[in-house]
Design a protein around this nucleic acid. Structure first.
Lengths: 343, 343
DNA sequence: TTGTAAGCGTTATCAT
DNA sequence: ATGATAACGCTTACAA
């Protein structure tokens, strides 16, 4: 047939395809593909012609076709338990900042601290054949664990290190952080110490565990001073739990909160009740959220390296994806005690 | 060839395909496809066999193949200016809650209040051929605007209504909200009123505009009492701007903050300086973030219907996608003045 | 270095 | 109601 109707390479409707770019550049589609991806060796002159044509046409590769043909997408899936905690938002930002420049899309999955939701997200996102996975912590369903393993897709675990033997993980020891909190409060001469935690994910529990062990070592652990609730962490909840604790155990002289929002709520409630912080009760938060240093009194907190965790985890994943040597599989980024006015 | 090697339908490696499901159910692939999608009419008995086979195999459709074949993905792209503002996180949650049950993936794009970033995200996400688009506000590059229009993909605009003639939008009038803020402060007998805004996106500006117009109408507008900065909104910044305002204009007796975090910072700074709120200065915030009602004094704020905006916008988009009748193209969800202790 | 041919897994189209 | 066939747009062989 001489007539070019239905000729793919000259179609003028819809988005431009690789065929059209190739035709305009006077090369074969595969050469255009190679030139645009910068792989293989394409003569610089041809490559330039292709890039030119693509740009003139406003060509953007069809990710579906690409993923189908190569059995690989350009996406990386990141699963976090919450977006209401600034912690994860900051981590996500850092991840973006290293992955986007590499041409990778970042698929964000929020599983709301629910293992089932996480499992579903993993199943769904795995179907996209992502290049890599960034997961939070080690706590998940058996089924989710198996899917990840069976997929063979590179995966880096963020936030915790304590049970990550054999896995690539970037974070800090939640146990040690809890212990550091206890030691700090102890060093302030406080001995009736409480731990207040919400959400009750693995990491909150681990922090409490580290805190408890340190107190036991110091011989002043009192199980009655552990206040835990599965309710989501919030400023309002922090105030409530603070009140409850003071009512039931008025002798408490130091409190470690599993997250800064709880501690902030306690500070606010203390002000309302005229409870002197830190004189009557020392308050220590966790994560050092941006607003904490502006509280009255300024909140002491344990600063966690959330940006660094995101960045390093993404970098490690990149190395894994590209088959480059990965340094330490377990990256301990530590934490920093910020002593301010509340403790 | 009698030998079945390379027979697609019996391959046992990698993820199961539609072919394998079909073979196991004893039907053709297209019937399996139809049964699984619940479209067209497939005999209930066959459909059941297919579902059974799929479930046994743990079949999950390949979204790339699906998108390529149908020229449509199952994704909806949502673009927000920030995730650091709880406002957008709550909106996203609501969107998820209506779209996920419909089998739609939600692609989150954070453009950091940058028009260029937004344009890039639009270009990228459009390549995925999403079923719909959820955008924030009306402020974007010409190029972005054209891409959206040319794509023909259904789009709903969130948050603002003031310049959305002819578009599907769900939100409230930022102008009216600003005016309401002024009227409230005026009704409290305050006349030296300031507006403090950060980030300077369209909506912040519009709020200021509404506030200003109301003051002009009341005959007490003073341009010196408008403090604007492009820096990102935060508690720390709120404290700074509050100090700056008091230093340069000690006579101010009421301040409207463009976002609650700024107002919270002001409250905290006021406490530090011994400035009585609301006696010396009334403080009114915006958005009514969850922690605002726990501030000391409790922060008065304008509560914006962020969850409802997300939900209704998603529902409207769904209607558009399914070609169902859309009610009002412009949905005004209003706002609510929460008068607490700070004003 | 470039191109040809085939196929990735699904759905649209058109038969039956 | 079900199926055969041909795309969808790209990339992986492999060949030249």
């Amino acid at each position: 047939m001489a007539s070019p109707k239905n000729d793919k390479s000259t179609r003028t409707t819809g988005r431009p395809t690789l065929n059209e770019v190739a035709r305009r550049a006077g090369v074969s589609p595969i050469t255009a593909s190679r030139a645009l991806r910068g792989v293989s060796t394409v003569a610089e002159e041809l490559a330039e012609r292709v890039r030119q044509a693509a740009s003139e046409l406003g060509y953007v590769a069809n990710p579906a076709a690409r993923a189908l043909a190569s059995a690989q997408s350009h996406a990386v899936a990141v699963l976090v338990p919450s977006l209401s905690n600034q912690l994860f938002v900051d981590t996500l930002e850092a991840i973006h900042s290293v992955l986007r420049p590499q041409g990778l899309e970042v698929l964000i999955g929020n599983f709301h601290y629910s293992r089932d939701e996480e499992e579903n997200l993993i199943r769904n996102y795995l179907a996209y054949q992502p290049r890599g996975l960034l997961l939070t912590g080690f706590e998940r369903t058996e089924s989710a664990r198996r899917m990840v393993e069976a997929s063979g897709i590179p995966c880096v675990y963020m936030m915790d290190l304590d049970h990550g033997a054999g896995l690539h993980c970037v974070g800090f020891s939640q146990l040690s952080a809890g212990a550091a909190a206890a030691e700090h409060l102890l060093s302030r001469g406080r001995h009736r110490l409480a731990y207040v935690g919400a959400q009750l994910d693995q990491r909150t529990l681990l922090r409490g565990e580290g805190f408890r062990r340190a107190l036991q070592k110091a011989g002043c652990y009192d199980p009655a001073l552990e206040l835990l609730t599965p309710r989501p962490s919030s400023v309002g909840l922090g105030g409530e739990m603070f009140s409850q604790l003071l009512a039931s155990h008025p002798q408490v002289d130091g409190i470690f909160f599993g997250n800064d929002d709880l501690a902030q709520g306690a500070l606010l409630e203390a002000m309302r009740r005229g409870v002197k912080i830190p004189e009557q009760v020392a308050v220590l938060g966790f994560n050092d959220l941006p607003s904490s240093e502006f509280m009255v009194p300024r909140l002491s907190s344990i600063r966690t390296p959330r940006e660094a965790i995101g960045r390093r985890a993404a970098e490690q994943l990149l190395a894994l994806i590209n088959g480059k040597p990965v340094g330490e599989p377990v990256l301990d980024l530590g934490f920093e005690l910020k002593v301010r006015e509340s403790s």
